[in-house]
Amino acid sequence: MDISSMIMGASIASIAWIAFYPWAQLRRLRAIDARNAAPDATSD
């Protein structure tokens, strides 16, 4: 494998990481909010 192929693979991987990671965090935060919303609604 030559250097240009390695650079291309790394750039594709980094773009995929940038695209995927915020969505994974958002899904995790939504799950936390949903879990915390139920006890807060009953305590009012």
Rank of each mutant, 00 (worst) to 15 (best):
R28C: 03
Y21G: 00
Q25R: 08
L29G: 03
D40A: 15
S4T: 06
W23Q: 10
S5A: 11
S43V: 01
L26Y: 05
S5D: 14
D40M: 11
A10Y: 06
A24P: 02
A38M: 05
N36F: 07
I32P: 03
S43H: 03
R30E: 13
W17S: 07
D44S: 12
N36V: 06
D2G: 05
S4G: 07
M6G: 04
R35H: 12
Y21K: 05
Q25L: 13
S5L: 09
D33L: 15
S11P: 00
I12S: 02
Q25M: 11
D44R: 13
A16E: 02
S11M: 15
A34S: 14
M6I: 14
A37D: 00
P22W: 00
A10H: 05
I18N: 01
F20M: 11
D40H: 12
I18F: 04
Q25D: 08
P39A: 00
A31R: 13
A24Y: 00
L26M: 08
I12T: 10
I12Q: 05
M1I: 05
S43R: 09
D2C: 02
M8S: 14
I3Y: 14
A13D: 00
L29I: 12
I15M: 06
A31L: 11
Y21F: 11
I15S: 03
A19E: 00
A41T: 12
L29S: 07
